[in-house]
């Protein structure tokens, strides 16, 4: 079986700085795959390279066995690589519903439609309301995105991404700033995603990572260190050294609550 997503020696150099330095790993179709690593490991840059926000200096990004390295960001989104952003990036002056509709109408092939009002497109509206229901935001559908709380914005991020009908969903620190209740709801949401949606997430909250992920990739200083099951990763001394240069595993995941 081909991997849903495969990275082959992907690199991004900013002059001397090698933010991502020849990273290769593959993400199985339907996987819940997490990328972790200390600050500066190159996780966010890697996401930008996969989504096409930045063009890789070298290497190839393969979607279902096809090279999409030269495909611009908006085309990758229509092909099914959809990302959320670490710092919420929404349409703040628009309503919650409109945020979802913008994504949904694009992927329903309606975004060039100029005459029939959106309010008369029942299927599109129903779909958007369903999505908002799933992330728990439907009662806020008329609010401006700019008026949402931090946690609500993260939920809306996920709804917008899901409205793009992703094949590979890239979640960039989705749980950052969420309350425990919101995090729990979010974890449930990801677990309940259809099996054919492949999820790749970058996350600091290692409770979330080890609760959700079936595979974990560790990056360190822009390089690929290890890909394996959560147990393998937790047991790896290499990972421990990379994180802290320490052997004491209690310090390995400082952000994890004890």
């Amino acid at each position: 079986m081909t991997a849903a997503l495969e990275l082959r020696d992907v690199a991004q150099h900013f002059g001397q700085l090698k933010a991502v330095d020849g990273v290769s790993f593959s993400v199985a179709a339907g996987a819940r795959h997490a990328v972790i690593g200390p600050n500066g490991a190159g996780k966010s840059t890697l996401f930008a390279l996969i989504a096409g926000t930045r063009a890789a200096t070298a290497g190839a990004v393969m979607l279902d066995g096809e090279d999409v390295s030269g495909v611009p960001e908006h085309r990758r989104a229509t092909l099914g690589i959809v990302r959320t952003f670490q710092h919420s990036s929404l349409f703040l002056a628009s309503t919650v519903l409109e945020n979802v509709l913008l994504a949904a109408q694009r992927h329903a092939g309606l975004s060039w439609s100029m005459l029939r009002p959106l309010s008369r497109r029942a299927a599109l509206l129903d779909g958007a309301h369903d999505l908002l229901q799933r992330v728990g935001l439907d009662e806020r559908h008329g609010a401006r995105a700019g008026a949402l709380s931090h946690g609500e914005r993260r939920q809306l991020e996920v709804a917008v991404a899901l409205a793009c009908r992703p094949r590979v969903l890239l979640l960039d620190e989705p749980a950052a700033g969420m309350s425990p209740a919101e995090t729990a709801r979010f974890s449930r949401l990801v677990t309940e995603l259809p099996a054919e949606v492949t999820v790749l997430l970058v996350e600091h909250d290692l409770d979330v990572v080890f609760g959700l992920a079936d595979t974990v990739t560790v990056l360190h200083l822009g390089r690929h260190l290890l890909t394996g099951s959560p147990t393998e990763v937790q047991a790896s001394s290499e990972v421990q050294t990379a994180y802290l240069g320490a052997v004491d595993s209690s310090e390995l995941f400082p952000e994890a609550p004890t």
Binding site: F91, A93, E98, R106, L118, R121
Partner: peptide
């Protein structure tokens, strides 16, 4: 009021995000 109109307001609101959602 059309989807196209919403997309235009999306450009004003956050063009980078609109691109990431799949719009040229």
């Amino acid at each position: 009021r059309s989807p196209f109109g919403l997309a235009l307001r999306g450009i004003r609101d956050n063009e980078d995000r609109l691109r990431a959602v799949g719009y040229p």
